[in-house]
Design a protein around this nucleic acid. Structure first.
Length: 421
RNA sequence: GUGGAUGUGGCCUAACGGUUAAGGCACCUGUCUGUGGAACAGGAGAUUGCGGGUUCGAAUCCCGUCAUCCACCCCA
């Protein structure tokens, strides 16, 4: 048994998994750039207060799941449990409100939540995050959704389902919550224990309860989309008109809610099958009140976060083919003390000429060729005493096994030709 | 935080409560003194997660603990 093991809920992303991650990251970056989103990187830790404010006291994320610590200056800090609060803080702090609107930002990186790990849920996980700031109209909501769409589409995902709802705004949501609570009071004895707690602490959450006894109560519950104020209703209708006009499939889901306080109006998720209970691969929505809540100028905004570990799970579950990462095509083999230094010099010359090469660490010729094969070399350069005495090296094609002598001065040229440069 | 399942070399798996915990993959070496992929042979690698208990005897049974996986909760 190893003396040390990785912390619970963390993962080592091994070389064999890197092709999935590289492909995902480049797909995300390409799509984001193509849609006009610019990259922003914010710190992995911020003041605890920022998240308490931004994400919301009373949410599980803030109350139970943050990695918090005091730094040596006695400041309360927290590893980021999500991206949006930090991005909005950066937007305010750097005066980005003076930039031409919309301000479209994306980031990728790790986030941290102290939870019980399970399929698709980790304590350190990676998110892709996108935000559009400064636009109140539903076209921004659409743009953000289209980015998610295009990413999942270019990844080749099958059976994607977009779930859509509105959670209203501070003007209309309180009335809805009251109606919901009244409905639940009327069915007080029929609901599960969790819902009895939720209906006061986090009332919208009763809507996505999975307990069988709660299903009839949910089905007969009032729908928020019937109780939206004029402005929210119109916003929602316009967004749906865009989606309908584009023939983008989506499911109206009046049970879809968000666990973070800052959401207003639009909420959406993307679901994928076959990766366990944690099937939401992307979740987001509008958060018009957040910037002001964090002490900045009133700034309407909309965005989403996507869990990259879950996306990798989907890629594997759906058999998505990802390009192999290239290994150096050239492998330098050497025989004996006299040839070793020469082989190293040759290696450096090749690299300076822009040719990707690596050198054998020694052993019998047989062992060195075996390594060359296992490392996926296309061409092996054999540098031995015989070759050196003749002023040449032996070039072995690992595909055909064919060997040709090459004059030392011609090596770079010969390799370029063989590799099709 | 709650519940269930599972812990045997790096990975996968075997071993009726009974010798020195067996095999496969991978790794290293040799057959091949300067030629990869195949075959064959050999080598290295495990106080059976940890701690107690039952027993003449525990990988195996019991208790505890830790870890992993899955689910709840919550969320990406």
């Amino acid at each position: 048994m190893p003396q040390y093991s990785r912390p619970k809920g963390t993962q080592d992303i091994l070389p064999e998994d890197q092709p999935f991650w590289e492909h995902l990251l480049s797909t995300v970056a390409d799509a984001a750039r193509a849609h006009g989103f610019e990259r922003i990187d914010t710190p992995m830790f911020e003041s605890t207060e920022l998240f308490a404010r931004g994400v919301g006291e009373g949410t599980d994320i803030v109350d139970k799941e943050m990695y918090t610590f005091k730094d040596k200056g006695d400041r309360d800090m927290a590893l980021r449990p999500e991206f949006t609060a930090g991005v909005v803080r950066a937007y305010i702090e750097n005066g980005m409100q003076v930039l031409p609107k919309p301000v479209k930002l994306y980031s990728t990186g790790p986030a941290f939540r102290y939870e019980e790990p399970q399929a698709g849920r980790y304590r350190q996980f990676h998110q892709f995050n996108a935000e559009i700031l400064g636009i109140a109209g539903p076209l921004a909501d659409l743009e953000v959704m289209l980015l998610a769409w295009d990413i999942f589409e270019s990844l080749g995902f099958q059976n994607l389902a977009f779930q859509l709802n509105s959670t209203g705004c501070p003007r209309c949501r309180p009335a809805y919550i009251e109606a919901l609570q009244a409905h639940y009071r009327a069915h007080g004895e029929a609901i599960c224990d969790d819902c009895r707690r939720r209906i006061t602490q986090n009332p919208l959450r009763v809507l996505d309860c999975k307990q069988p006894q709660c299903q009839p109560v949910i089905a007969s519950a009032p729908k928020i989309t019937d109780m939206l104020c004029e402005e929210c209703a119109q916003h929602f209708a316009e967004l749906r008109a865009y989606l309908d006009g584009l023939d983008k499939p989506y499911t109206l889901n009046h049970r879809l809610v968000r666990g973070l306080d800052y959401y207003t109006k639009t909420v959406f998720e993307v679901w994928a099958e076959g990766i366990g209970a944690q099937s939401a691969v992307c979740g987001g929505g509008r958060y018009d009140g957040l910037a002001e809540l964090l002490g900045g100028p009133s700034t309407p905004a909309v965005g989403f976060a996507s869990g990259m570990e879950r996306i990798v799970l989907v890629m594997k579950a759906q058999g998505v083919q990802v390009p192999a990462l290239p290994s150096p095509p050239i492998y330098v083999v050497h025989l004996g003390d006299a040839s070793r230094l020469y082989a190293v010099k040759l290696l450096v010359v090749l690299r300076e000429a822009g040719l990707a090469a690596q050198i054998s660490m020694g052993g019998s010729l047989r062992a060195q060729l075996r390594h060359a094969d296992k490392r996926g070399a296309k061409l092996t350069l054999i540098v031995g005493e015989d070759e050196l005495n003749r002023g040449e090296i032996t070039l072995r094609d690992m595909g055909s096994g064919e060997q040709t002598p090459v004059a030392i001065g011609q090596v770079v040229e010969a390799l370029r030709e063989r590799l099709g440069h």
